[in-house]
Amino acid sequence: MSIKLERINYIYGQGTEMVVHALKDIHIEIKDGEFVGLIGHTGSGKSTLVQHLNGLIKPTEGHIYFDGQDIYAEGYDMKKHRSNVGLVFQYPEHQLFEVDVLSDVCFGPKNLGLKKDEAEAQAKEALALVGMGEQYYKRSPFDLSGGQKRRVAIAGVLAMKPKMLILDEPTAGLDPQGRKEILELISGLRERAGITIVLVSHSMEDVAEYVDRVIVMNKGAVAYDGAPKEVFSHLEELEEMGLAAPEVSYIVHKLREKGLEVETDAITMEEAAKDILAALEARRKGNL
């Protein structure tokens, strides 16, 4: 299972005054089991890009291959593709509409043509994955808290048993506790359900801690693509794009400027703490 984008260009507003070249020559391949963070400033084209991945937008130019098959070829089963590549939009709780949680989560599998009991089985499985127990099945989705609504909405996509899950800003509008819970849940999904994950975000902290590959978008093009440590070492370039590296990166860089011999590739709090302690220890020994 892999998805491959070849020379994707997307231009909208053709024939009007406001022509926007939203995506420029995008070449990306996402392999099975990867956890990819897609970051970029507002308007960098990241949301447009993920909508291409599950066929909601047709590129002006270029091809998208899923498992080697062109998804825009004639006769390609787009419905099946959309269940393979699940897309969770920003504020997904805004799409809830059913009378109770279970029927809402059943919406996806039912659309795939599953029978009621099969759909319910998949829905229950998905709800279990997001940590929503049986006591919620018959509750109205509108009575839940913000974080719970979001979990139900994510379950609504998971119930279609996607092989790849794309989440557009899944932590937007949540408090720190809720953010952490959702991120833990997402990274758990890869381990427990073996799903490839693409996390769209502009929060470096979110991305740095969990993903194993970062793709940075800038003005519709891919600016960086690599391991988090490598990408976040381009502190200044990222700043120019209106992005920031994780805060600890700044701290270790500042410390080094001030003369402490500390490693500068830490991207999480724990790593930074360890590096700084090691550096302090080394200095103390040197002084003795």
Binding site: G86, F89, H94, Q95, N111, L112
Partner: peptide
């Protein structure tokens, strides 16, 4: 937006 979200759910 909602239309796209529901299309993504089949």
């Amino acid at each position: 937006k909602i239309m796209k979200a529901q299309i993504a759910r089949g």
